[in-house]
């Protein structure tokens, strides 16, 4: 297990290093001069020169890369060109919304998908199974922003249980903050839960047809006992893979939902930064998201090994 963790950790560091080079190259080097892109075609020559000096564009590329990476490692992400505030503070503010939202909707996803998927698998071919499969199909197909607006209409405007948008902030207390995240989390979770429930069901059905389930039944276990004690854990590997991908998606992919609910999240930040051509912010947010994806994958691999002893030996 130690060896497994160490090799995975090494590959994590390598992936991060490669990703940082690619991001740096894509934004700073490839499409001409970043300063003129940021300022647009009508820029004054002296503002352009000032920005170039601020960005350090007069220095060689390798030095700029090391400077950027060194800054990232010390928590210095640079200063946003449009807002004139440290990027690290902007990201921090946004993460305080996006991370809890992602975790909240992921928790909802799992809480909905596991029972539904297991229930459907245990009753394969029954009316309940067919109905659930139809509903999850619908859940995948319905655009989540439309569903979000529907929820706003019902729960915020008619029933007035929730506010229609905005974020109360963590200073207002845990409950109001979570409450303002509830509708967006549900809107984000629904299609993800539909996907995960389908994966859970088919993974379980695959496992239920394995020989060792028959062995368990020959020992006297009922169908249900065999499912809970032997099939479930064996079905977790594909499910974990999907959960990892879903978390990465939820962290930044909620941009439309953030717009529907006026939430100051990461998705909106990167959207604004791209519109304003604020490359410093774009670069940092992209690096952060890549970091998140790679770390999540690492955690998923550790989870694989925790589930399956055969993987630990490798």
């Amino acid at each position: 297990m130690l060896r497994f963790t160490l090799t995975r950790l090494l590959s994590l560091c390598l992936s991060l290093a490669v990703a940082s080079v690619v991001i740096f190259a894509a934004i700073e080097v490839l499409p001409g001069d970043p300063a003129s892109i940021m300022l647009g075609v009508n820029a004054q020559p002296d503002t352009l020169a000032a920005l170039r000096a601020e960005l350090g564009l007069d220095q060689p590329m390798a030095a700029r890369y090391l400077d950027w990476i060194g800054g990232l490692l010390q928590g210095d992400f640079g200063i946003s060109y449009t807002y004139r505030t440290p990027v690290v503070e902007m990201i921090g503010d946004r993460l305080a919304v996006s991370l809890p939202l992602a975790l909240f909707s992921l928790a909802l996803t799992v809480v909905i998908a596991f029972p539904v998927g297991i229930w459907a698998a245990a009753r394969r071919g029954s009316v309940a199974d067919v109905a659930i499969m139809g509903l999850t199909q619908l859940g995948v197909a319905i655009p989540n922003f439309w569903f979000a607006m529907l929820m706003v209409l019902v729960f915020a405007i008619n029933l007035q249980w929730f506010s229609a948008g905005g974020f109360a902030g963590w200073d207002a207390g845990l409950f109001p903050a979570l409450k303002s995240l509830t509708l967006p989390a549900i809107a984000l979770a629904l299609p993800q839960a539909s996907i995960l429930a389908r994966v859970m069901r088919s993974a379980l059905l695959d496992t239920l047809s394995e020989d060792f389930i028959r062995t368990a039944r020959a020992k006297g276990l009922s169908r249900r006992e065999a499912l809970w004690r032997h099939a479930l854990r064996n079905a977790l590997i594909p499910v974990l893979t999907i959960i990892g991908m879903q978390f990465s998606f939820l962290l930044a992919g909620g941009i439309i939902i953030e717009n529907v609910f006026y939430l100051p999240g990461l998705g909106r930040l990167i959207f604004q930064a791209i519109s304003a051509r604020d490359l410093i912010v774009v670069e940092s947010v992209v690096m952060l998201l890549v970091f998140a994806v790679i770390v999540v994958n690492f955690l998923v691999e550790l989870a694989y090994a925790a589930v399956d002893p055969r993987l630990r030996a490798r």
């Binding site: 394995e210 020989d211 060792f212 028959r214 062995t215 368990a216 020959a218 032997h230 854990r233 064996n234 589930v307 399956d308 002893p309 055969r310």
Partner: peptide, 11 residues
Amino acid sequence: FQEPMTALNPL
């Protein structure tokens, strides 16, 4: 059973 390789729960 016939197949000892798959008759046991691997986990």
